[in-house]
Design a protein around this nucleic acid. Sequence first.
DNA 1: CTTGACCTTCAAGCTGACTTCAAGGTTTAA
DNA 2: TTAAACCTTGAAGTCAGCTTGAAGGTCAAG
Lengths: 136, 136
Amino acid sequence: MENLTTIGKLAKAQGVRAATLRYYEQMGLVPATRRTAAGYRVYGEDAARRLHFIRRAQALGFSLEEIAELLNLSDRPHASAGEVKKITRRKIAEIETRVRDLERMKRALMQIEHRCSGHGSTAKCPILAALGEDRS
Amino acid sequence: MENLTTIGKLAKAQGVRAATLRYYEQMGLVPATRRTAAGYRVYGEDAARRLHFIRRAQALGFSLEEIAELLNLSDRPHASAGEVKKITRRKIAEIETRVRDLERMKRALMQIEHRCSGHGSTAKCPILAALGEDRS
DNA sequence: CTTGACCTTCAAGCTGACTTCAAGGTTTAA
DNA sequence: TTAAACCTTGAAGTCAGCTTGAAGGTCAAG
């Protein structure tokens, strides 16, 4: 089954507002859908997957513009392979940097947690030290 | 040496604007500094470390409010250990989720990169599949 | 001892990502 | 068949996180 749905149902299912979906469409994040005779938007389940991706990526700190760029990568499967590859590698590198920074922050937080259990001494500001080295 | 400096120098050194530093002070992200007789702000190097942390944390997608919360953890070393511990654990869990999501996104990008080298077939939309499972 | 590069505050303006509102047309359930 | 619950567009409002501008005080170099 194709599982067609209206904007309101898709929105509710994904925990966003219908207005947000229209906004994403306007911003080019989701393609303009086909419409009913009355002009109502009609969504298939690919729309749900796409929307889900957008929300998760956002939670990871990507801007809508960056997300559009990521989605573009998979939308144009073989278009200008060289460029796609370049962007992809850049994104991968960005992600690796983020992960490293997050791991450092995590270690700092674990130190704080440990210290707060009474085991640590006055070792000061592990969190500030966390992202202290090397420039982005 | 204590390495005291003015707002302009600190700002330039960290690649932000002086106005941004004033804004952070206003928002409570950096404590109000002492001033010269003329009312000029005077910064020590702790300010530089703090600022550096703020910028990196921002790049990781934390809001200023969240960053303030993180900084508070290290500012009040032993204040209400129970609460600090709770917040710390929550932040650690959040970070772990983020890292997992980023790793998934990275794997998807690597598939795209691979596919674009001509090795892959029409395996479609690895990026959409990337964050497709389990809810945040 | 003045000129230009700083610093001060306060207020208004801008961008991204929505949200809300107004004024309507459509669908559906009683 | 009509009222509630949808949908449409367009435009304005909101919040975070700055940026810019105005109007003025301070400091360092020549």
